[in-house]
Nucleic acid binder design. Sequence first.
DNA 1: ATGGTTTTGACAATCATTATCAATAACAGC
DNA 2: GCTGTTATTGATAATGATTGTCAAAACCAT
Lengths: 130, 130
Amino acid sequence: MKRNTWQREAVREALDTSGGFISAQGLHSALHAGGSPIGLATVYRALSDLADQGEADSLQSPDGESLYRACTTTGHHHHLICRNCGLTVEIGADEVEAWAKRVAGEHGFTEAAHVVDVFGLCATCSATAR
Amino acid sequence: MKRNTWQREAVREALDTSGGFISAQGLHSALHAGGSPIGLATVYRALSDLADQGEADSLQSPDGESLYRACTTTGHHHHLICRNCGLTVEIGADEVEAWAKRVAGEHGFTEAAHVVDVFGLCATCSATAR
DNA sequence: ATGGTTTTGACAATCATTATCAATAACAGC
DNA sequence: GCTGTTATTGATAATGATTGTCAAAACCAT
């Protein structure tokens, strides 16, 4: 049976609060900074669970860390991420969905999954940059 | 000054031979299996160099390993990868290219880069799997 | 061949993540 | 509310990929 613990809730809330993508270690630090004595292993487990249940999205940062983010949209979607400030926009991508499936099919591939993420500079950071 | 060593050449050749994406550790094993006494650290360095020079493509597997592959097409392209045997098909993706640029623009993002890779089971592995 | 530098490679160090397992806490039923 | 069962926690060890270290070896212009 699944039980509700304050730790689970704390992770969920911390994720919501963070806004952008954050690493498991980062979340753990944030929670500790906020006075929570939650354990690192627990944070990893909670994030993994949330990701499995579709309540959180995960992706791999370019340097190999796993990053997590609270999912506002349920269901499959992709992200547009500001590489400077971390601002993230969730984007539906039926177009890409269809493309991925078609390309996979054309080459005889089955069980196609895909990784599609767009990194850039958001409007604010673009303006600041110059 | 950059020097040419047989190790560098061995890594380049092993990459060409492997055909698909392969991990640094995997390449090292393959080289050892072929009788080469090359060191693991050297393989990592060589791969990193090749990737920097654009002679190899690198991507992160879903479980966080860095995978490398000899680049046949110069210029921008994406990959369709068998998660079982590593077979890789290079695919141009004008469609996705246009989509990424458009979506980024719609949200005010500039300097859009994107990560687009499709993982699946190739025809052969699909057949074997059952 | 010689010398100055780069490169190598065995091994230690690091870093994120996962496994271990005894102690703890949730929940259902009384 | 109390109790027993059992999922969950968390400190720590283990793992596994990758990077740092540094003396020895290899490269190349001279």
